[in-house]
Design a protein around this nucleic acid. Structure first.
Length: 390
RNA sequence: GGUGAGGUGGCAGAGCGGUCAAAUGCACUGGUCUGUAAAACCAGCGGGCUACGCCCUACAUAGGUUCAAAUCCUAUCCUCACCA
């Protein structure tokens, strides 16, 4: 797709807003990374262990994925930071030349809650691989990300599982803020000596409490950073809360800092998040559900494992321009899924990621052309939202 | 033709007098999945109901024993193994 021009006066900034929607908080921008420019809104697929599950880097290239996620905690445990360092960094190791954003491992504080202990110093994990103990601190996590050579670094945070009360959210926020300061100090310390530094996207917490989130954003004003990672969402809270928080952060945060909403989302979430001022999102959803036989379409989710697909020879999404939709039928993909064929996962992952990236670029174009609101209405006129609590 | 083993839900395969509409696996039907311990997990799976309980039909077929049978007995049909 043709690159969109941006104002030359903005060209030196890390992040530039190219256009803003009049009827919502949506905006289009460009994030300048060491590995090239990333147009926003952007959907990033997740390569926790250095691989977007079931996909190859050739696939990512074909998809035009200019930025993906990786996970510091997982890669530190396996294959181990030194291996990746010897390989010339994660980019060389993987042979991926787009930007890589690394998650700190804060999410594992929640997802691996049974295997860790939090202290002021950091988080001690018992490895899910071999049971060995590992202390991750705000400083060591920055160190891991530096050695991995990722382009965008996040801070170690304390991610809570919903529900939680205000006191717990406050405690988690305050600890996260202290850890963020330590991560920040660690980056500055090393920047002085080595000069090698990734972009810093500290993670904010604060749960579903607007006052806490406001505090979190205001706290960032005391630091140098490149973007805001909004953590602690998609942890089980009601959707309205997520959007309320995204909206609040967007209204409080400086305009020239990209807003990264962590762990979102589904096709419908992409539209909602961007409406509330979000610039970047990542989610395991498209690749995970693909491995479970689910495809995303303009009409909603399609479970190819259902009997209805057995003799349905249409493409997954007739309007989709992706390689998979141009090549294979629902019947065939459903058959592959039922048969447990690896290719089902590969093909459906490819389609689902394409689908979300396509939504992101559709939104971007619409924002720039001043018709975001209409584009969103068009999308939801066909798309079947999932009923909450159905 | 002889001897032996056996016929259980879509398939495989437990059960071997009551607590059996019948373990378990697969298949099948549906659901879930949001900074990935996930190619995972959950539920249903004879039929019918005035359903957190009841009724009917079920363990090759037909009889029988028993208060009670998928489980014991008899006959028939059919499989499989070995021997001729």
């Amino acid at each position: 797709m043709p690159p969109l021009e941006m104002p030359s006066s903005e060209s030196l900034k890390t992040f530039s807003v190219v256009a803003k929607d009049g009827s919502s908080q949506a905006r289009a921008g460009v994030l300048r990374t060491p590995r090239g420019d990333v147009e926003t809104p952007v959907f990033m697929s997740v390569a926790t262990q250095g691989s977007v599950k079931a996909m190859t880097q050739e696939d990512l290239r074909e998809l035009g994925a200019r930025i993906i996620l990786a996970n510091a905690y997982h890669l530190y445990l396996r294959p181990g930071t030194p291996v990746i360092e010897k390989a010339g960094g994660l980019h060389g190791f993987m042979n991926y030349d787009g930007a890589i954003l690394t998650d700190s491992g804060g999410f594992q504080v929640m997802s691996l809650a049974k295997l860790r202990e939090i202290t002021e110093e950091g988080v001690t994990f018992r490895s899910h691989l071999d049971g060995s103990k590992h202390l991750l601190t705000p400083e060591s996590v920055i160190g891991i990300q530096r050695r991995l050579g990722s382009d965008i670094w996040t801070s170690l945070d304390e991610c809570l599982k919903y529900p939680f009360d205000e006191q717990k959210a406050t405690d988690a926020l305050e600890r996260t803020m202290r850890w963020t300061e330590r991560a920040h100090a660690s980056i500055r310390r090393h920047a002085d000596s080595e000069g090698k530094r990734g972009m810093f996207f500290p993670i904010i917490q604060g749960g579903t409490y607007p006052a806490l989130r406001r505090r979190a954003v205001e706290h960032l004003a005391t630091l140098e950073y490149d973007g805001i990672s909004i953590g602690g969402v998609s942890v089980g809270e009601p959707k309205e809360k997520s959007w309320e928080i995204a909206s609040l952060v967007s209204s409080v945060a400086p305009e020239d800092k990209p807003r990264y909403l962590m762990g979102v989302g589904t096709p419908e979430d992409l539209w909602d998040a961007v409406s509330h001022g979000v610039d970047m999102m990542d989610c395991v959803f498209p690749t995970r559900v693909a491995r479970h036989g689910m495809a995303m379409t303009r009409e909603g989710r399609l479970n190819l494992l259902n009997a209805a697909s057995r003799e349905d020879f249409r493409p997954v999404d007739p309007e989709c321009a992706c390689r998979v939709c141009k090549t294979y039928s629902r019947a065939y993909l459903g058959h592959l899924s039922r048969a447990g064929e690896i290719s089902a996962m590969t093909l459906l992952s490819f389609h689902n990621v394409y689908f979300l990236m396509d939504i992101a670029s559709t939104m971007r174009r619409a924002i720039i052309e001043g018709r975001f609101d209409q584009a969103k209405k068009d999308f939801f006129s066909k798309y079947q939202r999932r009923e909450p609590d159905a």
